[in-house]
Simulated scan of single mutants.
Amino acid sequence: MSWSGDPVWLADVLRAAGLRVIEHDGWRDRGHGDFRDLRGVLCHHTAGGGSQDWRIVQYGRPDLEGPLAQLVLERDGTFRVIAAGVCWHAGRGSWPGWPTDNANYHVIGIEAVSRGDGSDWTPAQLDAYKRGCAAILARIGRTAEDCVAHREYSREGKIDPAGIEMDSFRRDVQAFIDGEEAPMSAAEVNQIREFVTAFCGPISADVKDIREQLCGEAQRDIGQYGGWPQLGNHTVVDALADVIARLERLEKREHPLP
């Protein structure tokens, strides 16, 4: 059964998912009235991209009174908890199972800090976005089918969150709901590879040899990779295993079983 009432548990649920959280003063009492039943999460971008984007979400703009979303997701993956009550973020639109033109009273809004051109998402932010959505949906008894882009819901020409392919996003969110680790995208794998190469340099023959020294007898005994001379021609793994075995034998001698 879906949760009814205000999500006063937001900060706790996000932290339990391993996410960094900043609680803004008074967030539990901030909002435009109380929720009815909660049916999902609506994903946005701020279209600013700066460190102060949260101020507009909390305090509003000249044409729309804040708060404008319950959560702000910073570029480093930190969630700001702005409000527990209803926020003005959904506008007019529809999604299966949600009230037409009235989603504000039924869905939690996440405003992710971004310029809005789809080019500046960080890996930490995208990972937190998925994990945060999953944690909220699991708490309210919903699946990733109720994790929706503003552009998918809106009939007012919204484009947010730009640059995020929602079918793939939902698959990853569902994996987290199911207790699985969502696979990294090809772009994320490439970013990690580029970082390692930049930090460590190209994987040289020396590094390769050291790595294989750690693999034990199976590779040493094919005649290509001998052990370390200072370890009696054992690999590092072999040497550690020998030390542990000796310690276990010593322990048994000093403390024999009755």
Rank of each mutant, 00 (worst) to 15 (best):
D63I: 02
L71N: 04
G232L: 11
K252I: 09
R211I: 15
L257F: 08
L257A: 15
G141P: 05
W54K: 00
R211P: 00
S2A: 14
R36A: 14
A182V: 04
D146C: 11
Y59A: 09
P123K: 02
D242I: 13
P99D: 07
Q70Y: 02
Q70V: 05
I140Q: 02
D160I: 00
P183E: 09
M184T: 07
A186I: 06
I56S: 11
V13M: 06
P96S: 11
D238L: 13
W95L: 05
N104K: 01
I136P: 02
I203N: 13
R61C: 10
G18E: 09
L250C: 09
H234N: 15
A47R: 12
R171F: 02
R75L: 10
I177H: 07
C147H: 04
F79L: 07
W9S: 08
L14F: 13
L68G: 03
E217K: 14
T46N: 07
S51I: 08
D238Y: 03
V237F: 14
G163R: 02
T78P: 04
P67G: 08
R211K: 12
F199S: 14
V81I: 12
P96D: 11
R75E: 12
G109Q: 03
K208H: 13
E165I: 06
M1H: 11
E194H: 12
D101M: 01
A135V: 07
A182D: 08
G5S: 10
Q219C: 13
I136S: 03
N233G: 07
R171K: 12
D160F: 00
V173H: 04
I164L: 14
G226L: 06
H150F: 00
G163I: 03
W54N: 00
V107P: 00
R142T: 03
A162Y: 01
R142E: 15
Q125S: 05
R220Q: 15
L19K: 07
A11H: 04
D25W: 01
V243A: 13
L38A: 09
G26P: 02
A11I: 06
P67N: 08
V81K: 01
V173W: 03
H150R: 08
C147T: 03
W228S: 10
